[in-house]
């Protein structure tokens, strides 16, 4: 069972009215694997993360996390749609970082990081604060603990958001275009933190990104989405060096052209 995938999308579909955003997606992600998801806008790549975080309901199929269904639960050998308690149990393994940070504006960086550990995990305040202090130090913000989000730069806010997600000790981290809302000079500091996470922690990571350079260097596998399907996937070297699919080639060409 050691090679049981950390996350499995089994024939997962998502539709908005007549528009099919994801069409019968099949995707397995191994423990500790780092997967970069790229593709043009509207290709359904962000939807993949949002479904896994249960922010969007799925219309068809099943999502599995560590061999347990997330969207469903087993009753008498059958899968039925999951209730809230079941979703919360499985969801505890997943953390997410958003494009627009979504820090809680009425709380300091420290309070953002201890809120959920205290209320959800039932940690003591002291323990939560110690852990949060460690995490804030890891993201390089020990000096900014008592700052409110508006007093921080975009890059600093995003690093707090990463620390906040890690404080819940997830096994899977989702990064949804986490550098897209940042000024160019702030992108590096956030990517540096993600890099450290990848090398120092046992984490399965899924990231939707436009940073091709980072995907190439950091990911174990790159998935190219187009029109609700995975068009092509593979290790970054092969994917970027020798793309097979015509749409992949066009996309990479266009992205490189833009610089």
């Amino acid at each position: 069972m050691t090679d049981r995938p950390m996350v499995r999308f089994e024939k997962v579909s998502k539709r908005y009215g007549p528009l099919t955003v994801l069409d019968s997606l099949e995707l397995d992600i191994a423990r500790n694997e780092k997967v970069a998801i790229i593709g043009p806008s509207g290709s359904g790549k962000t939807t993949v993360l949002r479904m896994l975080m249960t922010l969007e309901a799925i219309d068809d199929g099943v999502i599995w996390v560590e061999g347990e269904p997330l969207t469903h639960m087993e009753r008498n050998g059958k899968l039925i749609p999951a209730d809230r308690a079941h979703i919360r149990k499985i969801r505890a393994k997943i953390g997410m970082v958003f494009q627009s940070f979504n820090l809680f504006p009425h709380m300091t960086a420290m309070a953002n990081c201890i809120e959920a550990p205290i209320t959800v995990l039932g940690m003591s305040r002291k323990e939560a604060e110690e852990r949060a202090a460690g995490l804030l130090e890891m993201v390089g913000l020990s000096q900014k603990k008592e700052h409110y989000p508006a007093q921080l730069s975009g890059g600093q806010q995003q690093r707090v958001a990463i620390a906040r997600a890690l404080a819940m000790r997830p096994k899977i981290m989702l990064f949804d275009e986490v550098t897209s809302a940042l000024d160019p000079e702030l992108v590096g500091e956030v990517l540096q933190v993600i890099r450290r996470l990848g090398s120092e922690h046992d984490l399965t990571m899924l990231m939707v990104t436009h940073q091709m350079g980072f995907a190439k260097e950091f990911a174990d596998r790159v998935c190219f989405f187009s029109q609700g399907k995975i068009c092509e996937q593979g290790p970054p070297k092969a994917f970027f060096g020798n793309p097979q699919n015509e749409r992949t080639k066009q996309f990479l060409h266009a992205v490189l052209e833009a610089g």
Partner: peptide
């Protein structure tokens, strides 16, 4: 209150009551 606040609270696995009390109502 911005939708992202609900989503962030969901991602932190809060219950609806916790979200409302700690995140949404104060804002």
């Amino acid at each position: 209150v911005a939708r992202g606040q609900w989503e962030a609270a969901t991602a932190l696995n809060m219950t609806r009551l916790q979200m409302l009390r700690r995140i949404i109502l104060p804002q």
